[in-house]
């Protein structure tokens, strides 16, 4: 078993390197982080040249990647612009745990910036995931058992509408309804943006209150897709012979469902969670943008818009590593759930 784990982890290394090269090249061949530096005007030419030199952005792209990967503390760099490298580089590189300093929030490391936001994202995404799974399990199982019944059609149609909606649509519509109009109508209303009201402070109740709308929006669009998936998995299972046999034995529907069908449908559900968990770390770009939730999704889009390579690389690599680990865990759970699967 431990050899299996070790082998999987070793296999992941080239994978992660491919991913990092892919994203790095994409990012560095897009915009110029020094063009406006977030300001309203173009950066002065002298400053731009100086910063490119100091931040290493004037190097060829493969050198930038190498510096990112293994650091530049083994070379001299030219800081004062006289063409003679005189200062020892200070970056240690990703392989030694240094993702570099942000190009936007200079002086703060990418790791620091990411870890500040990670808890916020998890605080929003974990409850969302739980709600989505609970509801979509119920819906999925129900509509599988009553395939083509009127209720299945209604639930299917409803879930399809949710699935077919862009999330910003639901997010903004619910914000205008529950936050703006409810207030206008004198009804109890929900807050619009942020994680808490700064006038009240960061209390648990405030955070929960501010989580309602984002969770609602994300649930509406995701429950549908998931329940469809669970429905199809259940359908597959209940069309199996042993289920017929179980019914033939005269077992109650409940017993068949719990004892046989759900059990066998659990592997695909584990797969689903395995796929989801790493992406939970990435947060939800659109939802977080609309509701002003200070999570990873917004961090990503903010820093991507200024081509902050260290932070964007950091986020994507974090997700990639999480994907690798969660795939491994998923496979281990398979083996545990289904004794027929063995890893050597």
């Amino acid at each position: 078993m431990s050899r299996y784990i070790a082998r999987r982890l070793l296999q992941a290394i080239p994978l992660l390197i491919i991913i990092s090269i892919l994203i790095f090249v994409l990012l560095r061949s897009s915009g110029d982080p020094l063009a406006t530096m977030g300001g309203r005007r173009v950066t002065r030419p002298d400053d731009r040249a100086r910063l490119a030199r100091v931040l290493g952005l004037d190097q060829p792209i493969y050198m930038q990647y190498i510096y990112w990967l293994i650091g530049n503390d083994w070379v001299m760099i030219d800081v004062d612009g006289d063409g003679v490298p005189e200062t020892q580089g200070s970056r240690r590189g990703v392989l030694r745990g240094d993702f570099g300093n942000s190009l936007v929030t200079r002086g703060k490391s990418a790791v620091e910036i990411i870890t500040e936001r990670l808890p916020n994202t998890l605080m929003l995404m974990i409850p969302t995931e739980i709600i989505i799974l609970t509801i979509s399990l119920s819906i999925g199982i129900y509509s599988a058992l009553r395939q083509y019944s009127i209720l299945d059609q209604v639930v299917t149609a409803g879930s399809f509408i949710g699935y077919s909606m862009p999330i910003f649509f639901i997010a903004l519509a619910s914000m205008y309804l529950f936050a703006v109009n409810f207030r206008k109508w004198g009804l109890p209303y929900l807050p619009t943006v942020g994680m808490f009201d700064p006038k009240v402070g960061k209390t648990t109740s405030q955070i929960i209150w501010h989580m309602v709308l984002p969770i609602l929006s994300m649930s509406v669009i995701s429950i549908s897709g998931y329940s469809r998936y669970i429905r199809s998995q259940m359908l597959e299972v209940i069309s199996q012979d042993y289920i017929r046999t179980a019914y033939a034995k005269g077992l109650s529907e409940r017993m068949v469902l719990i004892g046989h069908a759900l059990k066998n449908a659990s592997i695909p559900i584990v797969t689903l969670i395995g796929i989801d968990i790493p992406f939970l770390l990435g947060g939800a770009v659109v939802t977080e943008t609309i509701f002003g939730w200070p999570g990873m999704g917004r961090l990503f889009i903010d820093h991507l818009s200024r081509y902050d390579v260290p932070v964007v690389m950091g986020i994507l690599m974090l997700i990639s590593i999480a994907v690798v680990i969660s795939q491994l865990l998923t496979d281990l759970v398979y083996g545990w759930l289904d004794p027929r699967i063995r890893y050597d």
């Binding site: 903004l172 914000m175 205008y176 936050a179 703006v180 619009t192 943006v193 942020g194 700064p198 943008t289 609309i290 509701f291 002003g292 200070p294 917004r298 903010d302």
Partner: peptide
């Protein structure tokens, strides 16, 4: 308070 979206700011 950071409100990155114009429409959300208006709201």
């Amino acid at each position: 308070q950071f409100v990155p979206d114009d429409a959300a700011q208006t709201a």
